[in-house]
Design a protein around this nucleic acid. Structure first.
Lengths: 222, 222, 222, 222
DNA sequence: AATGAATGAGCTTTCATTCAT
DNA sequence: AATGAATGAAAGCTCATTCAT
C-alpha cells in the first residue's frame, strides 16, 4: 500500500531492453502517474494523455487496463483501501490500556507517511474531488472511515470505563484527536502555510499530543 | 462579518417589490448561483449555462458581468474577503484576558455560520478547487489566513505571558484550537459522516472546548 | 461624396447642448464610423457596438437607422455610388482630342483623393470584403466600373481613329492606364511598401504617365 | 516555383493507391481545403468544420495538425513562401541584357499560374484578409515582396546604365510593369469583369507588353 | 499487446439583434 | 427617439474514447 507513489517510471524508460516489465506492473504505474497528476492539478485538468506520458505508455494503453478516466480515480481509491484500515482497527480492538502509548505509536506512523507524502495522497484527492465524484467519498467513507471509527470510539470508551481518561463523548474525541493534524496538512498543502521553523511536524505532534492528553486526563480531585 | 455572503436583496431601499431586479442585483445573484453549483458539483462540472439558469438569466448575461468562468470563482473569493478577517484580527488584538471567553464567543459565531451554511461555502470551495485554481488559495491564504493567524498567535502568547494558559508553541496551538472543528466539517460535508444523535454541533463544541481548555491549563503545582 | 469620412464625430460630442444635430446627420455619422472601422479591421472583426461608440451613439441607435450589420456595408457602397461615375463618364464621352490632357487632369483628381484618403476607402473595402459579400462587388462593378469603362474605351477608340495614339486593344489599355496606380495603392496600403523618398505619388504619376504615353504614341515611320 | 501549392499526393513513394493517406498528406490536404474556402468565402465566414469536411476529416483532426484557425492562414502563407521569391530574385540578379526577353519569360510563367489558379490564390487571400490579419501582410511583404523588389529594381537600373531602356525611376517602373496584370486579376476576380472575347489573357499580355516596352524604349535622337 | 490518428460531443465565449424602459 | 441589458445562435477549441494498424 505504501508503494502507491513509489516507482512512477524511474527515469529511463528503455533501460531494460530485454526484461519486459512484469506485466502486472503496468496498471500500477498508470495509477501512480494518475495519482500524482490528479493531486497536482486536479482530476478535471488532467488529461488522459498526460497520465499515459507520465507513466511511459501510450494513450491507448491506459484504456487497455482501465475502461475510463473515472475508473482511474476509482481504482486509486480501491488500491488505497488495503490493509491499513483493517490493521488499525485490529490494533484498536486489541488495546486496553491508557490510550497514550497506542496513539503515540500511531502518531509516529502518520508522521512517517506525511514525510513520505504517499498514502496521504488519496485522502487529499478525495477531498478535492468529492463534489464531482461523490461515489468516491462514499466508498472511502464506508470502507475506511466507518471501519476504523467504531474501533477507535470503542477504545476510547474502554479507556473511560477504566478511568484512564475522563468521560467525554468518544465520537467527538476522535475529532479532537485527529483534527489538528488534519488542519495542519490542509494549511501546508493548500495554502502553503508552513511554520517558519524547520521541523514543524515535530512541533505539531509534540504540542498537539501534549494538549490532547492533558485535556483528557481524569479530573484530579482537589 | 455576516455580510460575506449576505443575501443581495437585503437593504432594498425603495420597495418596488416585484419589478426592480435589473442591473444592481444581477452580479450578486449570479455569484450566489455559481457558489451553490460550484460547491454542489465542483467548478469543472458546472457549466456556465447552469449558473445562468439557476440565477434566472441567460448564458450571455453572465458574460455581461464577468469576463470568464474563472473570473466567477475569483469574484466569489473576493466577495468573501470582506471585513471578517479584519474584525477577527481586531478582536484578537484588543483582547488581553484568559482566552476562554473570547474563544467561546467565536465558537458561537462559527456555530451560527455552520448552521446557516453560508460563509463556510467559500473556504470549502477553495479546498476543493485548490489544485486547479492555485491563485485562489494564494489569495485567500494571503488575505484571510495570514491576516488573522498572527493576531491569534499573539493573543495566545499574551495569555501565556500572563499565566492564563501554559507555555506551548502558539502557532501549533492554533491548529489544536481549530482542527477539530475543521475536521468535523469535512467529515460531515464530504463523507456525510454525521454522529447519530441530533445536535452534533452542540456536542462537538462542548467536547472540543472542554478538552482544549483543560489541555492548555497552567500546570498545577504539586 | 468627398465628405464620406469628413466629420466622424468632431471630438466633443456634447459641444452643442442646444442645437440638436440635424436629424439627418446621424445615419451619415454612423456610416462614417463604420467605414473607418471596416477599413481598419475588416468587416467581421468590427462589432456593431464599436461602430456605435465611434459614432457617438448607442448600439440600439444603429438599428434605428439600419436594419442589420450587413445593411451598413451596403449603405456604404450605395453612398459611394454617387456622381463621380457619371461625371467621369460624361467627361470621357465629351472628349475628342489626344488623351493626354484629359488623363493628366484625372491623374490630378486621383492624386488628390489618394492624399485625402477618402473616396478610396470604399473600393478598398470592397476588395477586402468581396469574398464574404459578393453582392457588394456585383453592385459596385455594375454601377461604377461598367458604367465608366465603356466611355473610357470609346474615348481610346476615338483617339486611335484620329491617329492620336496607336492602335491597341482599348479594353486592355484601360488596365495599362490604371494598373500601376492601383498596384501602388495596394502595395502601400496592404504591405506598407512605400518608396523611401518622400513624394512618392509625384514620382509615381510622373513615371507612369511618361511610360504610358510614350508607350501608346503612334509609331513613327523610319 | 510551382511547388507552392503542389498537390500533396505527388511523389508518393510506396504505391498503396487506396490506403495510405494518414499522417503525411493530411496537413496539406487540410491546407488545400482551407485555401479554397478562404478564397471562396473569406476567412471569417469559413468554419473550421467546413474545412475539415472539405478535407475529408473531422473537426478535431484539423486541430491535430494546426493549433488554431489563425494558424491555418499563417501556414498557408508559409507554404507559399517556398523558393519562388529566391528563384525570381536569382534570375533577376543574373540577368544583364535588355529586359524584354527576361520579362517575357516571366510573363509566360505568370500566365501559366493565372490559368492554373494555384499560386495566385495566396496573394489574393492576403489582399482580402489584410485588415484582420495584418501579420500575414507583414510576413508576405517581408519575405516575398521585399526580397524580389530590390533585384528587379537593380535589373532595371543596369538596363538603364547599359542604354537598353531610358532612364526612369526604377522603383516606379516595377509598378508600371506589374500593375496592369495585377489590375486585370482583381477586375476579373472580384468584379467578374472579363473582356468579352475569349482569350483575354493573351490580349492582356500582348497589349501590356507592347505598351510597356514601347514606353521605356530609349529616346531616339532626331 | 500496443499505438496514436481520428472522432465528435460538449463546453466556453462572442456578438448581432431585440425590446422593456 | 434612444438606450443598453438581455438573449441565444453560432463558432472555436478540448479531450475522453475508439479503432485501424
Amino acid at each position: 500500500m505504501t508503494d502507491a507513489i513509489q516507482n512512477p517510471n524511474d527515469a529511463d524508460p528503455k533501460a531494460a531492453p530485454k526484461f519486459r516489465r512484469r506485466k502486472d506492473a503496468r496498471p500500477d504505474e498508470i495509477l501512480d502517474a494518475a495519482l500524482r497528476l490528479f493531486v497536482e492539478q486536479g482530476f478535471a485538468k488532467t488529461r488522459v494523455e498526460d497520465i499515459a506520458t507520465r507513466a511511459g505508455v501510450s494513450k491507448g494503453a491506459v484504456y487497455l487496463y482501465f475502461p475510463s478516466k473515472d475508473a482511474l480515480i476509482e481504482a486509486l481509491v480501491d488500491r488505497a483501501l488495503g490493509g491499513m484500515a483493517d490493521e488499525i482497527g485490529a490494533a484498536m480492538r486489541a488495546y486496553n490500556g491508557h490510550p497514550r502509548p497506542l496513539l503515540e505509536r500511531f502518531a509516529g506512523v502518520v508522521r512517517h507517511h506525511l514525510e513520505q507524502n504517499d498514502v496521504i495522497a488519496v485522502p487529499k484527492l478525495i477531498i478535492h474531488e468529492a463534489p464531482s465524484q461523490p461515489q468516491l467519498a462514499r466508498i472511502y467513507g464506508e470502507r475506511v472511515i466507518n471501519k476504523v471509527m467504531p474501533d477507535v470510539i470503542a477504545m476510547f470508551s474502554r479507556a473511560m470505563d477504566a478511568g484512564h481518561i475522563r468521560r467525554l463523548d468518544p465520537e467527538m474525541l476522535v475529532r479532537s484527536m485527529l483534527g489538528p493534524v488534519f488542519l495542519h496538512i490542509i494549511l501546508s498543502d493548500i495554502f502553503g502555510i508552513v511554520p517558519e521553523r524547520g521541523l514543524s511536524l515535530d512541533l505539531l505532534f509534540e504540542t498537539h499530543l501534549s494538549v490532547f492528553f492533558a485535556g483528557i486526563e481524569p479530573v484530579k480531585e482537589a
